[in-house]
Each structure stands twice: as structure tokens, then as C-alpha cells.
Write a protein that binds this DNA or RNA. Structure first.
Lengths: 222, 222
DNA sequence: ATTCTATAGATTATTTATAATCCGTTCAGG
DNA sequence: CCTGAACGGATTATAAATAATCTATAGAAT
């Protein structure tokens, strides 16, 4: 049984464990607070404790899990406050990204329009998973357009809070209405108005962070 | 010989290895590009491969080392471009921090003044190590004053580039002149002028990133 | 009844051993 | 002289076994 896996192996064992846990955490299958027992995960994935520890260590670096010595790891609890704080940082970073990315997008916003169209389509179908995926793609395109590796790295470190907020706000807000801001942003970038694009991005993101989540939805502390 | 170590043990082995490597990298003893051989480090610190791997994994999460599968880890090479990019992000984040921190500092800037005095003293003695330490303390106080954990976490992730720039600019710039900006920032915070404090912080940091480093000082790629 | 202690089970931390991979060197063939 | 396959040392990756620590429970002492 392990033979087939071995034949298909591209990444290291630790990498595969990491990807599996990453997927399960981001999809919400592993809720915040869930314990991650090393030997149990190792058995599930037909490997040993070492690679699992390494995967957990990397996920801890991404701030997705927290580990206490001799007590183990669990999926990080994210408070409503964490999400508010993360969105303020994200708004600030994307404002900068919008300004920096203007030279790149002026007159060539085809990719952005494609992403925005996909977002709109998913919003109309109320397909949260697809909406989230394309929404993140849209914003990532802008951050990548800034051509600043450190900016991208920093932005990526906020991904967990962003996905969680998108998940928590499911059904609470009008996705179609929220996504309309994207078209104004695209227009500003297309015309080379970086200041405006940055301002719109900041407003768009900050507004969203304030929307749709009541306290009862907040992940409860253990 | 291991007995004495064992008696004094507070942290786990992995944590001690991490702290040792962290210190040696930040102090410049381990230059960018230096290979970090797991078993060699393990022997030096009287432990085995496992804890060393864990320490390296955590340092990779802090972006201090890079690891290639089956090829090992080395202290990260930081290009001049990386430093420029990091300083732009840092300037943006500290501008935000300055604005957010105003309520906290208005009328109570004693800690900031103490740090700024220590910086000035070190600048006059041309004591780079002490200057760096207090300079980072000064800026950290402001970021902490913003009361935003995510902001602090994000700011911390830029620490390596910041220290490296401070190190690279040694002897190339007038430390006394640069640090004078601190007093204007303190004054703005003391008076509750957050917008001005933010603007001054942005200028101060961005200026510094442009100063004093010629291309020949840039860490060379292997 | 309450608090303290001891014990057992579960889990993490570390060590030791083994497998897989990389990389420079050597040497055969052209 | 050049090319490429094969060997060997060095290092990382994984596995397996053991040690250290935590947590809950049960029982004894007060």
C-alpha cells in the first residue's frame, strides 16, 4: 500500500504532511482548538513522528498552530480581535501595494478582470469556497504586482485570519454588493491612479472586516 | 559534563539550540550564506540531530535560514533589494504604529526619552552594537504602543533585515545626526499629533534605508 | 469533606539507527 | 581531450525505540 504512494512521491514526507494539515485547517475541517496528536497523525498518513513534528513546526511558523512544551499542538484560536487587527494591517499593506502596482497594471488589467468576474459569478451562486479562492487570487495579484517580495511575504502571513473572516462572514453579508468595489479598484489601476487605487483598497478591506460577524460567532477560548 | 547542563536546564534542547543559533546569526558571527550542518551543530551542543532540525525549522519560519531538501540549511542571504523592500514595509507599518500609539504616549513619553538618550550616548561613542540594541528598543516601544498584536508580530518579522542594514551601515553614516529624528518623533507623540508622528517615522526609516551602503557592501551571492 | 500524594496512561522530547539523496572524483570509452 | 557512468563520502530524511513530562484518578492522611 505504501508502494503506490512511494511511486508518486514528489515532495518529502514532511511536506506532504504539512500540505495535508494546511488543507484541512484552511478548509475548516480542523477547527481552531483541535488537538493535533503527533503519533495519531503519523499513523493516519503512514509515516513516523519526525516528519509530523517538522510539519507542525512549519505550521507554527505560519501562525496556524500553537504548541506548548510537553502538551502538544492545536489549531490556533483566532479571536475577533486578532481578525480586526489583521485586517487593519492588511488594509495598510494593500493600500501600499495598490500604489506600487500601478505601473504594472496601467492599461493591462485583464487578469484582474478575469478574477473579478469569477468572484462575481461565485457571489451570485452563494458559493463561499469558490468566492474565497478567487477573492484571495484577486488581492494576491495586486500584491504581487507591487514587485516587492517582502511585501508579499508579509501579506501572506495574514492569510489565516483572512480566510477565517471570510468563512465566519458566510451568509451574513451580501457578497455581490461587497465585490463591486473590485471594479472601481480595477478602474483606478487601469487609469494609473495609484493613490486612488490604494485608498479604495484600504476602504474595501477595512469595511469588510467590520461586517457581518456577531460576537457569538467568535471562536471561543478553550 | 552533561550533568551540569542538565541541572541548569530550563528550556528544551531545541529551544536552547534555537537561541544559540539566533544569537550567533544576529550578532553576525554566522554570516549570511554560512552552512548549518545538523550533526555538526548537534555535536557542538551535546545533543542529537532531532532538536537541531527543530531549531532550524523554527529559524526558517523566522526567515533567518533557508533550507533546500537534501541539501541542508544556510543562513539566509539578504540582498540590498531585500533590505530596501523591508524598510519600505517597515516605514509603512511604523507610520501606522505612530498614529495608533498616540493615545498611549500623549503626555507620557518617559520611556521613549530614556531609550533615545541611550541611543544618543551610544552614537557619540560610535558603539554600533549598543546603538542598534537601543534603536530597536525605541522603535519597538512605539510599535508595542499601538496595542496591535498582529502589527507587532508583522514588524518583528522584519527584524533580520533591519539589523543587517544597521550593521552594513556601520561607519558609513553619522549616527548622531540620524538619531536626532527621534526627538521630533517623541515631541509629536507627546503632543498627541499622531499624523505627524507617523509621517516623521516614515521619513526617518525610509531615509535610513537609503543611506550609507554602497553596492560593494552587499552580501554576495554564493 | 478536603487536600495531598502516588500511580498509570497518554503524549511529547530526545536519542539512536537506518535509508535516501547529493556531489565530487575516478576511470572507461570514444 | 572530452564525456558520461559508477563509486564513495558526506549529509539530510525517516524510522524506531527510549526517556521525560503531563494529566487525570484513586486512595490516604488530616
Amino acid at each position: 500500500m505504501a508502494d503506490k504512494d512511494h511511486a508518486l512521491q514528489r515532495d518529502s514526507m514532511a511536506e506532504r504532511v504539512k500540505q495535508d494539515l494546511l488543507r484541512r485547517i484552511m478548509s475548516g475541517e480542523l477547527r481552531p482548538g483541535t488537538r493535533l496528536v503527533e503519533l495519531q497523525i503519523a499513523r493516519e498518513l503512514n509515516t513516523s513522528q519526525g516528519p509530523v513534528r517538522e510539519a507542525l513546526c512549519e505550521l507554527e511558523g505560519l501562525e496556524l498552530v500553537v504548541t506548548e512544551p510537553y502538551k502538544g499542538s492545536r489549531v490556533r484560536e483566532v479571536t475577533q480581535q486578532d481578525i480586526r487587527e489583521a485586517y487593519l494591517i492588511r488594509a495598510t499593506l494593500e493600500k501600499l501595494a495598490g500604489e506600487l502596482a500601478t505601473p504594472r497594471f496601467q492599461g493591462s488589467v485583464a487578469d484582474l478582470k478575469k478574477a473579478a468576474t469569477a468572484i462575481l459569478s461565485a457571489a451570485r451562486k452563494k458559493d463561499i469556497a469558490t468566492y474565497t479562492r478567487h477573492d484571495i487570487t484577486f488581492h494576491r495579484l495586486i500584491v504581487e504586482g507591487a514587485s516587492n517580495r517582502i511585501l508579499l511575504r508579509t501579506w501572506n502571513s495574514l492569510a489565516f485570519e483572512v480566510r477565517l473572516q471570510l468563512w465566519l462572514s458566510r451568509g451574513k453579508i451580501d457578497l455581490v454588493a461587497v465585490q463591486e468595489a473590485h471594479w472601481k479598484i480595477i478602474d483606478a489601476l487601469d487609469k494609473g491612479n495609484g493613490k486612488l487605487a490604494g485608498k479604495l483598497l484600504h476602504e474595501h478591506i477595512y469595511e469588510f472586516s467590520r461586517s457581518g460577524v456577531s460576537q457569538s460567532d467568535a471562536p471561543q477560548q478553550k
